[in-house]
């Protein structure tokens, strides 16, 4: 597809959360096809409140997200043999790209050791690293569009 043209359908949503003594705590973000990026972080710890922000990415930025997802080859994977979501937590990764729509779920992954000892280390590793790219909180230098999102909207608070 040509530069500057429609990049094709692209949607990405990631959720990680659990229910515990602080209620339903989760982090979720979503890239929509028109460039809207939404980010929600709900932590009830010490009465933290829900953070909900949204901003628009340019087509160029969304296209770069799409490239990163495509190069990860996550769409070829399957969550069949990944660890099931459990009491400790749940992750969801939903992506629409071209003619494919995946919606994967798994438990929380604490470290690469969890990946290596799973039944599908190859597939889960791809998931793990892709999420790292997009996860702003756990990887400080992680996906900076979201990091920047937070800087951008901070002055609203």
């Amino acid at each position: 597809m040509a530069d500057g043209e429609d990049i094709g359908e692209f949607y990405l949503r990631y959720y990680v959360g659990h229910k515990g003594k602080f209620g339903h705590e989760f982090l979720e973000f979503e890239f929509r096809p028109d460039g809207k990026l939404r980010y929600a972080n709900n932590s009830n710890y010490k009465n933290d409140t829900m953070i909900r922000k949204e901003i628009f990415l340019t087509q160029a930025a969304l296209k770069e997200c799409r490239r990163i997802v495509a190069e990860s080859e996550i769409m070829k994977e399957d969550d069949n043999s990944w660890p099931e979501p459990d009491r400790v937590g749940r992750q969801e990764l939903e992506i629409v790209m071209g003619n494919e729509h995946i919606s994967f779920t798994t438990s929380k992954i604490g470290s690469l050791m969890d990946v290596q000892t799973s039944k599908d280390p190859e597939g889960l590793r791809i998931f793990y690293y892709l999420v790292q790219v997009f996860l702003p909180v756990q990887s400080f230098e992680g996906f900076l569009l979201i990091y920047e999102l937070n800087s951008v909207v901070r002055h609203l608070d």
């Binding site: 359908e9 949607y11 028109d34 969550d79 939903e94 003619n99 729509h101 919606s103």
Partner: peptide, 22 residues
């Protein structure tokens, strides 16, 4: 759901779906 929430009504063929999320 794709039409309404995700792709904003874009015209396209049915998606091939995969994953426990469905």
């Amino acid at each position: 759901r794709l039409k309404s929430a995700i792709t904003g009504g874009g015209s396209s063929a049915p998606k091939k779906t995969k994953g426990r999320g469905f």
